[in-house]
Design a protein around this nucleic acid. Structure first.
Lengths: 101, 101
DNA sequence: TAGACATTTAGACAACTTTCTAATCATAGT
DNA sequence: ACTATGATTAGAAAGTTGTCTAAATGTCTA
């Protein structure tokens, strides 16, 4: 599966987008994230797995907790792909031959 | 369903991304698009429906053919959403209070 | 080492996706 | 009006997703 597929699949769910939004200002534990939703912690855990798979977040165990944080670099991959469809288009003429999907 | 969900869902498939890529340089008929794939025209038609639903493409009948073209403005919605996760962040301080998802 | 807390994993289920074949709709040309 | 061509729609099969409950794992503290 192409990486962009994982990324866009991960972004294609409102719950997961809300999780990312929560992590935007500061890192949070799984429990803190779950506290913002009505679905079960197990379901949130599943969503976190999908976000990890897409490499949009990373996790680190900190004692009893698992702390999640954004991996901002991956958002740029999606951004770059989208850019080719805007009026800006493929800007750099030296940027060579189909790095595109 | 939030519009971003439609957009990212539509982008989360390699076939559909390839269709968008084909349309990047010029408008194409359903048949011309289908010629680039091994799956059936019926399946391509289905993918085109999903792209239309997300408003990423528009269609127009031209005699016997149906011509598809990109709707570049929608790509920007996705782009703007992604931008808030890059180092650039929410740039404008006067851009107010949660237009976010 | 036992108990409590935080989180994940396993297994089940309904809903949705992707693909196909076959049938239908729309237009053009004879 | 008939037929050929371009494209979509309908319905079915196989796979994937999002959610749940219940069980398991990992870590801290007594």
């Amino acid at each position: 599966m192409p990486p962009l597929t994982y990324i866009f699949k991960a972004l294609a769910d409102p719950t997961r987008r809300k999780i990312l939004h929560l992590l935007r200002t500061k890192d949070l534990t799984a429990g803190q994230i779950a506290a913002n939703f009505t679905i079960t912690p197990a379901s949130i855990s599943h969503h976190l797995t999908i976000l990890k798979q897409a490499d949009l977040v990373v996790d680190e165990r900190r004692g009893q907790n698992i702390v999640y944080s954004l991996n901002t670099t991956v958002f740029q991959d999606a951004l770059v792909w989208l850019l080719q469809f805007t009026d800006a288009g493929d800007k750099a003429p030296h940027e060579e031959e189909n790095a595109h999907d």
